[in-house]
Amino acid sequence: MKRIDVVYAFITNERDDVLIVKNVGRNTWSLPGGAVENGETLDEAVIRETYEEAGVTIQPEDILSINEAFMSFSQHHALFITFRGRVVSGEVSIQYPEEISEVKWAPRQEAEELLPHYPYGLQKMSNASAVYYNEGLKSV
C-alpha cells in the first residue's frame, strides 16, 4: 500500500458556521483539503488546498485531529490531518468547478450531518488541539 497524507482545514466564521465544500467526483461534502504534494509541508498543503477548493487564504493553526484509513480500492494507507484554520484573505468561491460543485458556510448542526467522516463530532474535534510547528530544513 502506498502512503498518502491528506490535509483538511476546519474553518469557522463569526457565527460559528463551518466552511464546507461539495466534491464533484464523489458528490459528497467535506472540509476543504486534499493530498499533500511531493516536497510540500503540511501547512503549505492546507493553505494551497483551501484556496483551490474554497477561494480563501488561511492561516493554519493547531492540529485538531489525525485519522487514518486503509483504502482497499486505491491501495492507499491514508493519514488525514485536520488543522484549525483562520481566513486571512479572499472571498469564498469555487476556483475549480471540475472538482468542487458547491462551497458554503454551513451552520454547525448542518455541517455535522453533512460530514460523516468525523463520528466523534465536529464539536469534540474543534475543542481538541495539538501544537503544529514547521521546523523547516534542518542539517541533521
Rank of each mutant, 00 (worst) to 15 (best):
M1F: 12
K2V: 15
K2Q: 15
R3Y: 01
I4T: 11
V7L: 04
F10Q: 00
I11F: 08
R15T: 05
D17A: 04
V18Q: 00
V18L: 02
L19Y: 05
K22S: 03
N23D: 13
L31K: 13
G34L: 05
V36N: 05
E37L: 11
E37F: 02
N38T: 14
G39N: 10
L42G: 12
E44T: 04
R48W: 04
R48D: 02
E49A: 05
E49D: 06
E49M: 07
T50D: 05
Q59Y: 10
E61V: 02
E61T: 07
I66W: 04
I66Q: 13
N67K: 14
N67G: 06
A69S: 15
F73M: 14
F73H: 14
S74M: 09
H77K: 11
A78W: 01
F80K: 01
I81D: 10
I81M: 13
F83E: 02
G85E: 09
V88Y: 01
G90R: 07
V92A: 01
I94Q: 09
Q95T: 12
S101M: 00
K104D: 06
K104W: 00
P107N: 14
Q109L: 10
E110T: 12
E110H: 00
E113L: 11
P116V: 10
Q123S: 14
N127W: 10
A128Y: 02
A128E: 08
A130I: 14
A130N: 13
V131E: 13
Y132C: 07
E135H: 08
